[in-house]
Amino acid sequence: MLLSVENLKVKYGNIQALHGISFHVNEGEIVTLIGANGAGKTTSLYSVTRLPPPEAPRVVEGDIKFRGESILKTQASSVVKDLKLALVPEGRHIFGNLTVMENLILATYARDKDIDFSAEYKRIFDLFPRLEERKNQRSESLSGGSSRCWLLVGH
């Protein structure tokens, strides 16, 4: 199992935000969190990616395992750099003055510089063919549907 979230209970200050969510993601699988506004979808993903304070939700019970190892004590920077696990938040938190391709290149910043990312860009464009058509377009001109929330899990 690639990612496992077990009975996760999370608080923001004294407010309980998650009351025991569990889900699993296997290698090559796509899992979707669906729910109403305020149901805890974003909080769940912030918890998985170990968002640093002051925005961070505080895990009070449960566990998050990546490749079988708990990541509850892992720093957010290590989650991205070492585990290759990242969150691209909803709301167009992209660099609007950069092109789609420049944003993708920027997303590889913390990764090993000796890697040829062309295969990964091809995979992204295979998943999102409209992005390939717009790879030279400034990101600020994309529609909301072209810049939604993705949880990207590296290899």
Rank of each mutant, 00 (worst) to 15 (best):
M1I: 09
L2H: 02
L3I: 15
L3S: 03
V5M: 07
E6H: 13
K11L: 09
G13F: 10
N14Q: 13
I15F: 08
I15S: 13
Q16M: 12
H19T: 14
S22Q: 05
V25F: 10
N26A: 13
G28L: 12
E29W: 08
E29A: 08
E29L: 08
I30S: 12
I34A: 07
G35A: 05
A36P: 12
T43L: 06
S44A: 14
L45P: 14
S47W: 09
S47G: 11
V48G: 10
T49A: 09
R50L: 06
L51Y: 11
P53A: 08
A56M: 05
P57D: 03
P57T: 07
R58D: 14
V59R: 01
V59E: 02
V60K: 02
E61K: 11
E61Y: 09
G62L: 03
G62T: 08
D63F: 01
I64M: 07
F66I: 05
F66A: 00
R67L: 06
G68L: 02
E69Q: 03
S70M: 01
L72G: 00
T74L: 01
A76F: 03
S77Q: 03
S77F: 09
S77W: 05
V79H: 01
V79Q: 00
V79W: 04
V80L: 10
K81W: 01
L83N: 06
K84L: 14
K84T: 05
L85F: 11
L87S: 05
P89W: 08
R92L: 03
R92C: 02
H93S: 00
I94W: 02
I94A: 03
G96N: 03
L98P: 01
L98W: 05
V100R: 02
M101P: 00
M101H: 08
E102D: 11
L104Y: 13
L104R: 05
L104I: 14
I105Q: 15
Y109R: 08
Y109G: 04
K113L: 04
F117A: 02
F117R: 02
F117P: 00
S118K: 10
E120Q: 07
Y121S: 04
K122Y: 05
F125W: 10
F125N: 06
D126N: 15
D126P: 06
P129G: 12
P129A: 10
P129H: 09
R130L: 10
L131A: 05
E132Q: 14
E132L: 11
R134G: 05
N136C: 00
S139T: 15
E140G: 08
S141V: 11
L142Q: 02
L142W: 06
S143M: 04
G144H: 07
S147I: 11
R148Q: 14
R148C: 11
C149S: 15
L151A: 13
L152I: 15
V153R: 07
H155K: 12
